[in-house]
């Protein structure tokens, strides 16, 4: 359990760092972003509301340190301020509408991609210089070199626009009533296929290569050699001995790549007008909606930290050495 506590401590620290960054960034920047921000609200908010907003961001006349604690206090209460683009909705409410979609899209894509990529890496390493090993890694690295959003545009253009096999965007059709009905869920899946496929395509090569390379190292280890000497079936040698061990560094890499993949997933959302954080982020950038931007940054960071904690639990389960009493 000490392992998890240590990781938890680290994530709390990272979350605090993100909060602090969020607080100091506007104050470190040239010019006066606070003035710019409030200029955008002028005429839309009364003096009292304006004062409340100032306090939320700690943009008062108080000394910096007390501004900082005021800010932390508000954020901890879930008060992220008011959105400019979606005036007068509070930032948290705006983010809340899209969070599920982002987590659904990125989460599904990253799990599908990791699973398939890792299995292909095992196959590639075991049949070294075979047909798969010769062609697949290079092909997938090439596909992975395309920007997410560009591939999304091509996929959308060919499969959606030209062939009409898939809807052109959004999370579900206009004629649908959200709920747990089969038709609605089927529609959600139909809308999610292209964006998920895009993210999977771009990231597949990375997982494949990382698993392939660790597999090749593990296949040369003593315990795999002993497993072969024991006369075990090749399947058992590969899965239970080689792949089971090679998975560990891949899972660590998985945690570290989460933030990166999420970024790509956000860009993909934009192309598909998918109603997640990516779409909101563009709205925020276009409208110079700083409260929304900062809110999205915080929420996404927290989501990534949470996902990393889950990955740590998986690692704990996979590697008995981390379960030690010490």
């Amino acid at each position: 359990m000490r392992y998890i506590l240590r990781r938890l401590g680290f994530y709390l620290l990272a979350a605090w760092a993100a909060l602090t960054l969020n607080f100091f960034l506007p104050r470190l920047m040239p010019g006066d972003p606070a003035a710019a921000l409030f200029a955008r609200f002028r005429g839309r908010l009364g003096p009292e509301a304006m004062q409340a907003l100032r306090e939320t961001f700690g943009l008062t006349e108080a000394p910096l340190i007390s501004q900082y604690f005021t800010y932390l206090g508000h954020v901890l209460k879930g008060d992220f301020g008011i959105s400019v683009a979606y005036f007068p909705s509070p930032v948290l409410e705006v983010i809340g509408t899209g969070l599920v979609w982002t987590i659904f899209l990125a989460g599904t894509a990253v799990i599908v991609s990791f699973t398939i990529g890792t299995l292909l890496g095992v196959v590639s390493a075991w049949w070294r210089r075979g047909l798969i090993d010769t062609w697949l890694p290079s092909t997938l690295v090439f596909i992975g070199a395309f920007p997410y959003f560009w591939l999304a545009m091509v996929v959308l253009y060919v499969l959606g626009f030209t062939l009409g096999w898939f809807p052109l965007g959004h999370a579900y059709g206009d004629d649908m009533t959200p709920g747990f009905s089969a038709t609605f869920l089927a529609d959600v899946v139909r809308h999610a296929v292209l964006p998920i496929a895009t993210v999977v395509l771009v990231t597949l090569g990375g997982w494949l290569l990382s698993m392939r390379n660790t597999m090749i190292a593990v296949l040369g280890s003593d315990y795999v050699n002993l497993a072969r000497a024991k006369g075990l079936s090749p399947w058992r040698v590969v899965m239970r001995y080689a792949a089971r061990n090679a998975l560990l560094p891949s899972v660590t890499g998985f945690g570290m790549a989460l933030g990166f993949v999420l970024g790509g997933s956000l860009l993909t959302e934009i192309v598909f007008s998918y109603p997640g954080q990516g779409y909101l982020l563009v709205q925020a950038v276009r409208n110079q909606d700083y409260p929304l931007m900062q809110g999205i940054f915080l929420v996404i960071t927290l989501a990534v930290l949470g996902a990393n904690l889950l990955v740590d639990f998986v690692y704990l389960w996979l590697d008995p050495r981390t379960r030690g009493s010490a």
């Binding site: 050699n225 497993a227 089971r244 061990n245 008995p320 050495r321």
Partner: peptide
């Protein structure tokens, strides 16, 4: 140490 599988 090296010859036994560390994870099973």
């Amino acid at each position: 140490m090296n010859a036994l599988n560390p994870v099973i």
